[in-house]
């Protein structure tokens, strides 16, 4: 507890205890001041996050379709979950979620690491480049998605034009409308949008490794690959773990980019769980089923995080 005695430290300072002139100043001298400061945020989190989330979980056990008020809003037990098991779209979306998150994290990780290693070189101009490459990360999904939709347009897209000129394609392709390429195209776009996050964190972590460690390793005769393996990677273990887990959470939870690029199509080939849950709520107004879908998504995500951290032997 941070009462006056421990905060102020010495008994002599008691003589100089401030005389508050305002009510706020008065409150701030209370011994529970540290708690007063966090109470508003806790209230907020409860009202705006915990209550809705708990409510959402409860909803998943009820019938609630805004378009069918005649069905009522009774509890239906596990019916939504049972429906899910026999819903082919759910299984497709689950499979796609795994593909989407794995491929995007891998690609962003590789790009981010390569960028960080390069930009960590002590060369003129690298600092400016390190800031400029962050730009895509700050762009809204609506703009990021539509830039690429524009560049990949089968008739007017500049990328198709380049591929045709280079002889890779005989004519422009509808990358996002072709079931074979839609998901992987979306992964590349997501990587463009998201990899600067990895680059940013990895670059900061690299800069945090003391240069002496590398010098000592060089004296001991370690090559570039050895010092990367024995110094760089161990030093970055925590950052890598944290970055990957944050990114996986983001990729699994947010359907924004796919919502803008494909809306789950063509033929559900880019349908992921978060998008399916959102569309179930937004287009079909079936709140009960959408709730059940997101609960399952949350459980899978939690399970992944716990297994992942255990695998890396990281506590907390």
């Amino acid at each position: 507890m941070t009462d006056n005695a421990t905060r102020a430290g010495l008994p002599t300072t008691r003589r100089f205890l401030p005389r508050p002139e305002t009510w706020l100043g008065h409150i701030s001298e209370h011994r529970h001041w540290a708690y007063f400061l966090i109470v508003p945020s806790i209230l907020f989190i409860f009202v705006i996050i915990l209550y809705p989330t708990a409510n959402g979980i409860v909803l998943s056990f009820r019938e609630m379709r805004l378009t069918r008020p005649d069905l009522g809003t009774d509890f239906v037990g596990l019916r939504q979950y049972a429906d899910m098991l026999s819903d082919p779209v759910f299984w497709v979306a689950l499979y796609n979620t795994v593909k989407w998150a794995t491929a995007a994290v891998l690609l962003e990780f590789i790009l981010g690491f390569a960028a960080a290693l390069t930009l960590n070189r002590d060369l003129p101009g690298m600092k400016v480049i390190a800031v400029l490459i962050l730009l895509p990360w700050f762009l809204p999904n609506v703009v990021a998605g539509n830039i690429w939709a524009l560049m990949l347009d089968p008739r007017l897209g500049v990328l198709n034009d380049i591929f045709v000129r280079l002889g890779f394609l005989s004519e422009g392709m509808a990358w996002l409308a072709d079931p074979d390429t839609a998901l992987w195209t979306a992964v590349v776009i997501e990587a463009w949008h998201g990899y600067p996050f990895f680059a940013l964190l990895f670059l900061a972590a690299l800069k945090g490794i003391p240069k002496d460690h590398y010098k000592a390793a060089a004296v001991d005769g370690a090559g570039a690959i050895q010092s990367f393996w024995h110094i760089t990677l161990p030093a970055m273990k925590m950052v890598i773990a944290a970055a990957v887990i944050l990114r996986v959470i983001g990729l699994v939870n947010s359907p924004e980019l796919l919502l803008i690029l494909t809306g789950g199509g063509p033929g559900n080939t880019t349908q992921v769980l978060s998008l399916y849950a959102f569309q179930t709520a937004y287009l079909r107004f079936d709140f009960g089923y959408a709730g059940a879908l997101s609960v399952v998504m949350f459980i899978i995500l939690m399970a992944f995080c716990i297994l992942y951290l255990r695998f890396l032997r990281i506590r907390d």
Binding site: L50, T53, I57, I249, N253, S274, F287, S294, M297, C305
Partner: peptide, 17 residues
């Protein structure tokens, strides 16, 4: 940890609230 909660799970009750 609260950041892990799916946005979709919150969005439905938020809509109702």
């Amino acid at each position: 940890v609260v950041r892990m909660f799916p946005a979709v799970l919150m969005i439905i009750p938020l809509f109702l609230i």
